[in-house]
Structures are given as structure tokens and as C-alpha cells.
Design a protein around this nucleic acid. Structure first.
Lengths: 158, 158
DNA sequence: ATTCAACGATTGATGTGTCAATTACATTCC
DNA sequence: GGAATGTAATTGACACATCAATCGTTGAAT
């Protein structure tokens, strides 16, 4: 394959790769979301929040720290926590050393929901994603994804 | 690398690949969306609608056919077309042979907007995605994406 | 021909994400 | 210690996606 001039627009072949990549990624995400929702009754946003909290030391985080670890906007976190609080999955507690802040904690109900969700979710990751590939292909995925991340990281952000 | 038992949960290494894959894909999508929006004032949903219409013969489609080609829910199409019609990008015309149906057409303003958007968008695809890879890596992407699509296609849908 | 199931498309309700503005507290600097 | 500035988090308005319900039309069975 000839290296295309970087100034030119993508060739048809390049565009086909692009579309295949972006469409399968989006399809995969939708399929996982659907399984998580139907098997465990939580969205992947809920899952991410619960995962991040349960990985934190003390199993609690300031809401801005939560936002930083998940790479979400602060206001998104705020809205989402509001909804999760309604459903009894998390609780907001006033923060001892900074009375502006809040600490977010999983309720026991939230912990249970997370434990109930996690094994089926991991199984779905295996079935829908990992099982699609031979070991060498998985290595290819890892290295191309890393290359892409590096590239995006160096391209001007925001 | 040893082949994991398909029944087991993912290993840490496998999960790392999974996360790298899904996060970079999502990051890429967000970056492209942002460029499309800021450079051309359209969302990628708008762009997809306009692209699909402009690829159609007669540059017009029944709205359900539009939904099928984009793989969107019908109601999503309906809502989105409503908004695009407000902005003058598309027009809905009554359908000759089936008075239940509507045909969707790009307005001349819509055509212009699409032409204005497309070159910058393709350039962004090159810069943010294609330029990240060596040619062999692009081949790897193509074949792993194809494998994934095949896998997802054969796994029970919906 | 009349009925009725199927179909094309829209609608309204709800949950979600983004942006800009706001509130309340904290910190800094004189 | 009081004014300005900064920071944590929430709020409201809006755009968007999904779901279930709806409306009007079509087509098929009797």
C-alpha cells in the first residue's frame, strides 16, 4: 500500500477503514450498554461511577475528583449523581475540611448493585469483544489503540 | 500470550486492552464531533443525515429508508429531521405513491452546508485518525475491525 | 365492501449531556 | 479584617436519544 500524501483527502480505501472502525466501535458500545441495562438494570454511566467509587481508597471521592477520574464534565457528574441519589445508589455527604465540597459514597444498595452488575458485565466484555479476536489480533488492537491515543494526545486538545 | 479460557472473566491484561480500545474510540469520536461543530456548525448526526441523502439516487429518501441506511430508530430520525427542517437544512415532501409516507430532500441551503462541511471533515479524519498510523497498522485496524464486526454480526442481535 | 391487522411516520414523556450562569465558601493580598 | 479573586458544586435551559403510544393510511381476508 502506497503512503498517501498527508495533505490530500482520504482515499476511498482509507475512508472504508475509518468507517469500519468507527461503526464497529459504536456498535460494540451499544451492545454492551444494552446487556448491562437488561442484565443488571444499570447504565454504563452508572457502572462507571460505581466502578470509580469502588476503586477509590475509602470507597469515597470528592465529586470533582470523581469527575477528573472519569473525564466527565463537572455538571454532568452533578446531574448524574442527582439521579443516582434518587435511586438510592449513592449518597452525598458534607465534606469535613471544605464545606463547599461534597463527598460521594456508594450506599450499601449501590454496592450491591455494582457487585451484581460486574460479573455479567465482564462476561459480556469477553463475549462481545475479547472472543472476537485471536491473541495476535488482540495485540494489534492494543498497539493501534496506543498509537491512536498517543496521536490524539499530541494533537492540540480542546 | 496464552489463550485464556473462554469461560473465565477477562484478565487484567485483557481488560487493559479493552479499556484502551473503547476509550480511544470514544475520545476520537468526541474530537471529530467538536471539529465538525466548530468548523462547520453542524453536528455529526446532521452530517450523517446529509451524507446519506446526498449519496441517495435522486438525492431524496423515504424517511424510513433513511433510518434503515443510518441504522437509527425511526423516531430519532423523525425528531432530528424536525430540528433540521426548522433550521432549513432539509424539507419533507408528501410522497406520491404512498400518502402515509414522506420524502426527505436536502434544501439548497442544506446542500451548501454539506459541501462546506465535507472537506474540513475529511481533513479532520485524516489528521485525527489516519495520520496516527503506519500503513501496516491501518491494515491491522481494518482486519481487526472486520473481525469484530463479523463477531458482533453473528452474536445474537437485539 | 367492510373489517382489521400491518405499516409509515409522528408525538410526548422521560432520561441524559452540554453550556453558561449561579451560589456558597475559601483564599489571597493590601 | 475586608475586598477581590478563585474554586466546588449545583442549577436551568436547551439539544438530543429512546421508548411507548398514537394517527392516518394501506392492503389483505372474508
Amino acid at each position: 500500500m502506497v503512503q498517501a500524501d498527508r495533505r490530500e483527502l482520504p482515499t476511498a480505501a482509507e475512508l472504508a477503514v475509518w468507517r469500519e472502525y468507527i461503526e464497529t466501535a459504536s456498535d460494540l458500545r451499544a451492545r454492551l450498554e444494552a446487556r448491562l441495562q437488561s442484565e443488571s438494570g444499570v447504565s454504563s454511566a452508572d457502572y462507571e461511577v460505581m466502578l470509580t467509587l469502588s476503586e477509590a481508597e475509602g470507597r469515597r471521592l470528592r465529586s470533582s475528583e470523581l469527575a477528573a477520574r472519569m473525564d466527565w464534565q463537572r455538571s454532568r457528574v452533578s446531574h448524574h449523581l442527582g439521579r443516582m441519589e434518587q435511586r438510592g445508589l449513592i449518597r452525598r455527604e458534607p465534606c469535613a475540611d471544605d464545606s463547599r465540597g461534597a463527598e460521594v459514597v456508594l450506599t450499601s444498595e449501590g454496592s450491591m448493585a455494582f457487585r451484581r452488575a460486574s460479573v455479567p458485565h465482564l462476561r459480556a466484555v469477553r463475549e462481545l469483544f475479547l472472543d472476537a479476536f485471536e491473541p495476535e489480533q488482540l495485540d494489534d488492537i492494543a498497539s493501534t489503540a496506543a498509537a491512536l491515543r498517543r496521536h490524539l494526545g499530541s494533537a492540540a486538545r480542546r
